[in-house]
């Protein structure tokens, strides 16, 4: 019998059809065809196991923070250590001098540090009925153009979390700001979303995090988990 054709091997490997007796005899005798079908079967098995592996949640941001610290550490940390070693002997020598130097060091550190981004409004996010007791977070408006969210302990979801700015005087008026990445699922997440230029934050001052399903419906699901009001 001649070798099995590639389409036939795939069908057999996927167990869609079973080998007839001629094919079985050939597969038992032909090392080429039997190796081929073994490989295809293995790949088909692996393929069938990949469901659920297609959108793996990313590691939490703290893992990235650790990587970043490790790859940049030699540059950043050295000066600080030197500073400390230098201050200590002086401390032993003369207390007054130390006070002056420590003062200088503090001032230097303070002035060396880049300006932190200006927070123009903030809100502490409290949990609503559907959220676990430990859930919570905070929101900050940075320079009027970005919304920074720090959320923790949101429940696991098969959908996703959407962030809204709502007008508390008319709760039907709201703007969707974007979604929280699945990093939020793995504990804590720190997310920065752009604000639409010209958004009236005095009116749309209620920050709301809702649980949404992948149902193609862009409207608020009505399932709010966290809320807080922005104040200047």
């Amino acid at each position: 019998m001649q070798h099995l054709d590639p389409d036939r091997l795939v069908l057999l490997a996927l167990s869609e059809e079973t080998a007839d007796s001629d094919e079985s005899v050939h597969l038992a005798e032909c090392p080429g065809c039997s190796a081929e079908i073994d490989d295809l079967r293995h790949v088909a098995e692996l393929g069938a196991e990949t469901q659920g592996l297609r959108a793996l949640p990313p590691p939490p941001e703290r893992v990235w923070a650790g990587i970043e610290a490790a790859v940049t550490a030699p540059v950043r940390r050295l000066p600080q250590r030197r500073e400390r070693r230098w201050v200590l002997p002086v401390l032993a020598a003369a207390a007054a001098a130390v006070l002056a130097i420590a003062g200088t060091v503090t001032v230097q550190r303070f002035t060396d540090r880049p300006e932190p981004p200006a927070v123009t409004a903030k809100a502490s996010l409290g949990r609503l009925g559907g959220a676990p007791v430990a859930a919570g977070g905070a929101a900050e408006v940075i320079e009027g153009s970005k919304l920074r969210l720090d959320v923790r302990n949101l429940p696991l979801t098969t959908g996703y979390y959407e962030v809204w700015l709502i007008d508390p005087d008319d709760m039907t008026r709201m703007m969707a700001m974007g979604n929280l990445s699945s990093a939020a699922l793995s504990g804590a997440a720190d997310v920065v979303l752009p604000l639409p230029p010209g958004a009236d934050l005095n009116r749309y001052r209620l920050v709301d995090v809702s649980a949404e399903a992948y149902d193609g419906d862009a409207a608020h699901s009505g399932k709010s988990l966290l809320r807080g009001t922005l104040t200047n």
Binding site: L53, L56, P58, P59, V63, I67
Partner: peptide, 24 residues
Amino acid sequence: YGGAVLYLGVRLLGNRADAEDVTQ
């Protein structure tokens, strides 16, 4: 690739903290 690396860690080590460490 971070998600895949973390997943491998969780499957091999059976706990999330160690898996995050291995990812890092």
